[in-house]
Structures are given as C-alpha cells and as structure tokens.
Design a binder for these strands. Sequence first.
DNA 1: TCCGAATAAAGAGCAGTGCTCTCGAAAGGT
DNA 2: ACCTTTCGAGAGCACTGCTCTTTATTCGGA
Lengths: 231, 231
Amino acid sequence: MNAPKTARERARATITADIIATARRHLADVGAADLSLRAIARDLGMASSAVYRYVAGRDELLTALLLDAFNELGTVVEHAPRPEASPLDNWTAVWLHARQWALDHRHEFALLYGTPVPGYHAPADTVTAASRLPLTLAKILNDAADTGRLTDPATPLPDFDLTMIEPEIVALITLRVRDARLAALLSAWTLLIGTIGFELFGHHTGVVTRHEDYLRHTARVTGTGLGLPAT
Amino acid sequence: MNAPKTARERARATITADIIATARRHLADVGAADLSLRAIARDLGMASSAVYRYVAGRDELLTALLLDAFNELGTVVEHAPRPEASPLDNWTAVWLHARQWALDHRHEFALLYGTPVPGYHAPADTVTAASRLPLTLAKILNDAADTGRLTDPATPLPDFDLTMIEPEIVALITLRVRDARLAALLSAWTLLIGTIGFELFGHHTGVVTRHEDYLRHTARVTGTGLGLPAT
DNA sequence: TCCGAATAAAGAGCAGTGCTCTCGAAAGGT
DNA sequence: ACCTTTCGAGAGCACTGCTCTTTATTCGGA
C-alpha cells in the first residue's frame, strides 16, 4: 500500500482504478470471454495502446478482476452470519448469500469458478482471497464446537486418512475436530459452489424447479450432517 | 440417421466428420477458447470459407463437440459398473471413471461443465446426452433397491418437498425411494462434477494432496450416506 | 527559471479471428 | 449436351491483442 505522493503517481493510480472499474462493468455486461481491451479504452476515451501503460495485458486485467470478485464474494459471505442466530441458520445463510451474489454477478462467478483462462497462474493473493468462503464455513463449525453446539455425527465416520489434505490447510482451518469432517467440510464447499454453478450454467434447467428452496435444503442437510444441531 | 445415398451426400458426410474430428483434436490441444475455425481449415488443407458449407459457424461446431463429449463420458461411466461387484463399489467406480476421463480430456470436461460459451442454447439431444451420467448413478441405487441391498439411511431424513424437482426428472429417474434421497442423488452428481472440476481448475492445489484418494473417499461417504451398504 | 529526462498519449501497423460475398469450377440430373 | 445445383477459393470487412515509433506533456534538479 504505497501512498501516492507525487501528482503523477496520483493520476496513475486513479487512471488504473478507472480502467479496472470499467473493465468490471464490461465484465458484468458481456462476460470474460468477450471482454475487450479496445472497448474499455474506447469507453474511457483513450487510445487502446495507452491502456498498456497501466495494465500489462488482458490476462493481468482478468487477474485483477478475479481478485476483486473473490474479495467481494468473501466479504458478502463473511457478513452473512449473525451472532444471535443458530449455527445451522448461519451456515445456511452463507449458502444463500453466496448464491445471491452469484445470481447478481453471473459473469464474475463464472470467472471465479468456471473454466480458467488459458494462460493463467494463480498468484498468492488470489488463493488467500479465494479461501475466504471456505474459511467462513469452517469458522461456523469451529464456533459451534467452541460453544458446545457441535454434536457428534449420527452416522459412524468412515475411515479417513488425514494425509489426503495439505497440512497447511489443516492448520489454517484449525478445525476443532480433525476427523472425516474435515473432508466433509471441503465437500460442503465444493457442493455449494457446484450447486450454484449448475444452476447458473443451465445444468439444472428441467431438473430443479425452485432453485432457492433446493439450495436451502441442501445447505441444511449438509450442515446437519456435519453436526450442526437442527433448531 | 438418414443413410447417405448419392455420392455427394457421402462426400458431404465424410468431410463434415473430418471437420468435427480435427476440431476435437484441436479442442483437446488448445481448449475451447482458442479453438480456431481457420486453424481447422488450414489443418484440413481447405479454405476457411469452405468450412462454412459444412458447419454453420463456431458455435454449432462447439455444440457438436459438446454432444460428442457428453456421449463419450456417458459411455465411459455406463461401462464402469460390473454385475458381480457390490453396489457401493460400482458407485465408486463410476466416480473414479468419470475423474479419469476428465483427466484424460481436460478441455472437453471444461467445455461440458465449465463456463458455457456466450451464445449458447442447449438443444434437446444435449440434455439427454448430459443425463447419462446422473442416470447411471440413479441406476446403481435402483438396482441396489431391487436386490434388497439399499438400507434405510441411518440419519433421519429431513423434510423434503418433492415439488422442488421437476416431475419429469422424478419419473425419468424412477427412483424406488421418492424421499429426500432424490435430492441427495442430485447433490451426489453435483459433488462428483464439482470435485473433479475443483481439481482440474486448480481450486484444490495447496488443499488436497492425493486427489484420487480424496475422490474415492468422497464417493464412499456419499454412497453409504445414500444407503448403499459398505462391503 | 530553464532544460534535460522521464513519462504519457496517440497513431500506425502486424498477425490473428469469425464471417460474408462473389466468382469460377466441378459434378448431378434430365 | 445442357442446365442447375453444389462446391472451393479468394477477397474483404470488422474485430481482437499487442508492439513500435513518434509526438506531446509533465517533473525534478541546476
């Protein structure tokens, strides 16, 4: 976070922000595949070649949008739980808020969880931004465990080899229970994104009628399966 | 399936097949985003404009590849179960075969389940081809129920409103049990695709170490949760 | 204050894309 | 043999990402 001092640096920062802002608008309109650097330049009233003084290229621009979207989704889901609500309700709220954000930002969601762009490599800050959603899910489980509201699962836990998961992730999640529920938590995260993606990408047309109800049901089943008590 | 009679129709069919075949080769190489009609024409030694006599455009070509890939994946997973194996083993085999096909056809998988192409509308034959995978999963459950090898789930079934699911799907699956396991079956399908997609699209890098073991574990947990007895 | 250096802006240009149109050549049926 | 349909090829249009060169503007130090 270098504070801009000179007027040049100020102008540079604002112009770069302008470019990214209009890029996000265009992304929301036409999607990542049809995002055109020239169209962005036209919209800003500058020559297309001038954009390259602020952005290395199309891929870097998409990476910036990726980071923005991950953080926006992360902020949304982190504000979904409420302290006075039950863990299962908070768990479900995260699912529904994530879906709502995806519905309101279809192309951004597709950029995050759809087909990655051909020449893509995830920088470090990207993965931390992407982790905010699964970490929010883990936090609900941990808070429930800390307040004695995480019951043992009814079904016996299957054999589970913890070395399937990266040790850093195990430490990062700091899940109170280190059994098969760790894998179940990853599956819940996957199922959340997968269900939203199936709805948005059309795989549920002709299959699911009431999408929100279906996701809420799935959230509750998954949450109770992980040991969150039904209210 | 109109059998070609005249020599013209024969030549037309073979050339069209050639175009689709090389398109699939290129798709496997560079992915759907970088699929170039001109490159395909070059590869076939014909002018790019001549391709348009056989294919309406890039989108129609991608739709053809979509159909091909869905059917190939469907054939693979339909041949995964073996009669003498236990239902749970067959269930798991479908998961692992689907993953292996996806690993061997990354770009095809991305075309099927990744971000849909901008100007896309799923024709009817596409949805039937896409249904072969979830129907294979349903068939294993039904066969297990018919042979008395589908136990009642240990956890009590949550409230479930069947009207969330399209009636045609309910009839098509003809699941022996019409309770919340119908939604659980859809979730299993979603989780299978989602887990494979997360692995292929990089969301599991730094999270999951042994991907095949993780998917096998997820398959077994999901299968037993649906009532398939552990061997 | 002036002047050199750093920076920005703009335009031209290259290689590539999807797609359309036109025109000549080949093949088909009558 | 003729006429019609089909086919192949090329030119061309409107785009795209990106680079290079040239001109203009701004900044900082003497």
